[in-house]
Design a protein around this nucleic acid. Structure first.
Lengths: 215, 215
DNA sequence: GGTCACCGACCGGAACTCGATCATCACTCA
DNA sequence: TGAGTGATGATCGAGTTCCGGTCGGTGACC
């Protein structure tokens, strides 16, 4: 059980696209469409995103958008999922580079990954803001934090030797908090107020600290 | 400065409706429309709510909806504001009935009020979920927690004698957290898992505890 | 009688469909 | 081995449907 098991553990690649791509150009198309959607969201926001805008920006036609996504919401959901996946990969990279020995250090890896995405990925903050809106219609309301908390707890127990008792549940709460607070921080200040970010880190670490000490 | 000053302090009744009601039946209409909207949201969700559904359920015509609300978002925003107002009134009721002497007791009054609304008001959870989406387009992104944190801090300082230093900012964070966690609890379990609610209460109280002790 | 409240056909535009067309691939056979 | 050839994947965009929002006309109140 290593850090990079997190990706396979937390990602259930449920059918986001309508037709699985067969030819190579098709996968590129999907990526292009999602990039376009990301840019459109960053520019006009979630509410004002139209499928026509996405198509035009991707240099595709409306029909192509609907070939890959059942409806407008699914485009947003796929964007969200891709963002979540990138968060996981960045987290794993940070974890493997840092080799944390405490829960506190490990959490910092995750928060750094999230902050980096908020900073660099256009539309990421917006899509996180509305994740809970868009996703329920697609995969039944399972919030991202719930998907990651279980595998993450297992890995922390294995790698850090912390007490696993109720850890998954506390991680779920901690991640929900961190998500909400980071989104809030980036909504208020698009560059991300360092004080707000540090406050979030401290708050989450503080919340989880007793569990780490118990190890 | 008493608890019920909270309502006037936190509610800036900005123009939600298009034409202020003059005749009595008109106010009833607005309430009926908002009730209908609430029911529709509970049934099909925010995204799928159409103004036609609201009109039909309220026994009114499309035109009537648009007589009172400038657009679809405004209907949702008004619902949100009414929910927020009800939250404030319920909170004040709890505060005046309990006469709290500690920050912890006071926070419990607020959380109980919120939980009660999640339980009894159809669509309240959904609208809280998307409050941050719907409101920015109407009043410039001022989240509810920001509106309430200032007045609440002032009242707590006056009534409980706690240290007011940075209290408003910490209350803002605490309320953002509590809101996110309660919404999460009610999304997962529409009846509201008592354990999740108690965890939220404990978490928020714990976060604010140092401030209370410093008094 | 004048204003308030209400209605619902109508309009513009956005979501989404569908049949036609083009691109690619696996396979064949000279 | 490589040009030919269906089969199927991928793309297109005009057309359809549906929804948000308007507006002029008709009753309800004072």
């Amino acid at each position: 059980m290593a850090f990079n098991d997190l990706i396979s553990g937390a990602l259930t690649t449920s059918g986001q696209v309508r037709n699985e791509p067969v030819q190579a150009r098709s996968s590129e198309r999907i990526a292009t469409l999602l990039d376009a959607a990301s840019a459109v969201v960053a520019e006009v926001g979630i509410e004002r995103l139209t499928t026509a805008m996405v198509a035009e920006r991707a240099g595709a036609s409306i029909g192509t958008v609907y070939r890959y996504f059942p409806d407008r919401i699914a485009v947003l959901a796929a964007m969200s999922l891709r963002g979540f996946e990138r968060f996981l990969r960045a987290s794993v990279e940070n974890l493997e580079a840092t080799k944390p020995t405490t829960l506190d250090e490990a959490i910092t890896c995750l928060i750094d990954a999230a902050v980096e995405l908020h900073r660099t990925e256009p539309g990421f903050t917006s899509i996180r803001l509305s994740d809970q809106i868009a996703l329920p219609e697609v995969d039944g309301g399972t919030a991202s934090s719930a998907r990651i908390a279980g595998p993450l707890a297992a890995i922390f127990v294995a790698e850090l030797g912390v007490d696993g008792d109720g850890l998954a549940e506390r991680l779920d709460i901690a991640l929900t908090m961190a998500d909400a607070l980071l989104v809030r921080a980036f909504v208020i200040d698009p560059k991300g107020d360092p004080a707000a970010i540090e406050a979030t880190r401290a708050l989450v670490a503080g919340y989880l600290a007793p569990a780490g000490a118990r190890a």
